[in-house]
Amino acid sequence: MTLPTTGRGVRIAVIDSGVHPGHDHINSSLLLPGAAIAGDGTIDTGPEATLDRMGHGTAVTAAIQEKAPDASCIPVRVFHDALKTTGYALITAIDWAAGQGADIINLSLGSTNPAHAPAFAAAVERARDAGSIVVAPYAVEETPCYPGACEGVLSVRLDWDCPRETFRAATDGSGHFSASGLPRPIPGVPQRRNIHGISFATAQMSGFAARALETLGTAANCKNRIDALRAALRA
């Protein structure tokens, strides 16, 4: 399925390792001020707080901008020295992003610990009340992942057979969507040798969701906009 829009006017918070604005795949003119969230929930909005030193967040943001080239991106850095953080940092990041007016909160990660599910579900509900839609992986190798497995999330599955230019809606009544796990191509580098996986399926789905939200406009500007978005993506 493809969409004719570009995500214009949509704000996407990208919770990851930040972004490097000088990267060739990044349109820095559409980057909004962001924040870094420490494991204890401390928030830093300093001038270099969101500078990506790992590359993952830059690649994820590039995938989003490829799919929704006119959407604005808000980098939220939760990865600092490794691709791991705390549940508290993620929940703080979701709350902060919703408070910044993000229409979409891209979370290309999550926790497979079911003990974290209630806290994530509450954060998703707060975001939904603020008009923000969380896009996150439903599972990691078939193990439910939170917040992606929570009610009210645009849940994403990995589909290696899905072309990068499109996405698929589940036909089993689950409400999930699937997309390719391949990142934006780098000349001379085989895609399977580049970083890849569910993070990029989620990022690409966030881009497609931004394009659908552009068509909905203010009609979806309420806490039930997730339902309107799902319908638009299935249309």
Rank of each mutant, 00 (worst) to 15 (best):
H23D: 15
A119R: 08
F120Q: 00
I43P: 02
L182N: 07
L30W: 10
L3E: 10
V14G: 01
A220M: 05
P185V: 06
F208D: 11
V76P: 07
K67D: 12
H176G: 02
K223W: 14
I104Y: 05
E125R: 13
S72H: 15
D24K: 12
A228I: 09
I64P: 07
I12W: 13
I105V: 02
G22P: 09
R230I: 07
V189G: 10
I104Q: 04
H80Q: 09
G99A: 06
S17E: 14
F208L: 12
V135W: 04
A220V: 00
V189W: 13
K67G: 11
D81W: 14
E48V: 13
I64Y: 05
A232H: 10
L158N: 07
A97V: 01
P187V: 07
R230N: 15
G101V: 00
T166W: 09
A122R: 05
A119C: 06
S155P: 09
Y138G: 13
V134N: 01
I198E: 05
N106C: 12
Q100N: 05
A117F: 09
D81N: 14
G148P: 07
I133F: 11
H196P: 04
D103S: 13
L233T: 02
H80K: 06
A71F: 04
T58P: 00
F177T: 00
H23C: 11
H196C: 06
R11N: 09
V19S: 02
A122C: 00
H80Y: 08
G7Q: 04
V60F: 14
P187A: 10
A121L: 02
D16F: 14
G57V: 06
A102R: 00
A235N: 12
S17C: 12
Q65L: 14
V78N: 05
D81S: 15
A232D: 08
F120P: 04
T171Y: 00
E214Y: 14
C145R: 12
G7V: 07
Q204Y: 15
H56E: 03
P69F: 14
G188P: 01
P69C: 15
W96Y: 11
G34W: 11
E125D: 11
D129Q: 15
M205F: 10
F200V: 04
T112P: 14
Y146M: 04
R184N: 12
P47K: 12
A179C: 01
G34L: 01
G175H: 01
P163F: 07
A82E: 10
A127K: 00
L51Y: 12
A139L: 02
T166Q: 09
N194M: 11
F167K: 09
A149W: 11
A136D: 05
W96C: 01
A13M: 07
R126Q: 11
F177D: 00
R225M: 01
